[in-house]
């Protein structure tokens, strides 16, 4: 048990630098979700029900744009597809755990919990208590995400209506995309998605978004294959 506790805190410590970056992000999410028209309770609960930063920002944007539920759900699915990669990558290290542990650790498997954990497992391998490391990393992130959301929802209510706060959503997306445009395939994916989104803007139910996303994904994948 002592060993398990030590692993848990090792996980928290490894997560710590990421927590500092996540905290303001959670606050921004809370304030923007409220601004997008979600209730305070729904804004808060999304952080524990969906528990995936970028999908939550996108959902807030789509709720604000009055997109139909099915389109929002499909978008959440596409945005979160990458979690299958994390699941595949950690699977061999977690294969001997009970189903209960697999459930719990899967729920906590975010980008930020995955990153330090895979580094740790690849460097040191795993033994009977290693899963406590992922629990420490995952739970500390969960805890910070819930508290920062709450603070954001609380402060968001105090921001004056005249502030163009809704613009912070596309700005957040710009901050996520632009630094990732490091090669031709990424640029091509972003450009083609943008162009298709413009051309398909008039389509009903925000279907243009789905069409544009798939166009970008296909163009990027094909471009990379040609290198």
């Amino acid at each position: 048990m002592h060993e398990a506790r030590k692993k848990f805190w090792d996980g928290v410590r490894a997560e710590f630098p990421l927590l500092i970056g996540v905290f303001p992000f959670g606050m921004i999410y809370g304030a923007l979700a409220l601004n997008a028209g979600l209730s305070a309770l729904a804004s808060q609960m999304m952080s524990s029900i969906v528990f995936a930063g970028s999908a939550q920002f996108v959902t807030a944007q789509l709720v604000k744009d009055a997109a139909p539920g099915l389109v929002i759900i499909l978008t959440i699915a596409v945005v979160n597809l990458r979690h299958m990669l994390y699941s595949a990558s950690l699977a061999p290290y977690l294969k001997d755990l009970s189903l209960k542990w697999k459930f719990l650790l899967s729920y906590l498997l975010t980008d930020e919990a995955y990153a330090p954990t895979i580094l740790k497992y690849e460097a040191d391998g795993v033994n009977k208590t290693s899963h406590w490391f992922l629990l420490g990393a995952g739970f500390s992130l969960w805890f910070i995400w819930q508290t920062s959301t709450a603070l954001g929802v609380f402060l968001g209510a105090a921001i004056p209506e005249s502030m163009p706060l809704d613009f912070a959503l596309p700005l957040t997306f710009i901050a996520m995309v632009v630094p990732a445009l490091k090669n031709r395939a990424m640029v091509a994916a972003a450009l083609s998605a943008g162009v298709v989104a413009l051309l398909a803007y008039a389509l009903p139910f925000k279907l243009g978004l789905i069409l544009a996303a798939f166009a970008g994904i296909i163009v990027g994948t094909v471009m990379e294959g040609k290198k």
């Binding site: 990458r82 544009a212 996303a213 970008g216």
Partner: peptide, 17 residues
């Protein structure tokens, strides 16, 4: 491979319009 292009594609499809 395709999964790498999900974030730039989805987010650009929101940002540009």
């Amino acid at each position: 491979r395709a999964l790498h292009y999900v974030p730039p594609a989805v987010l650009s499809a929101i940002i540009v319009p």
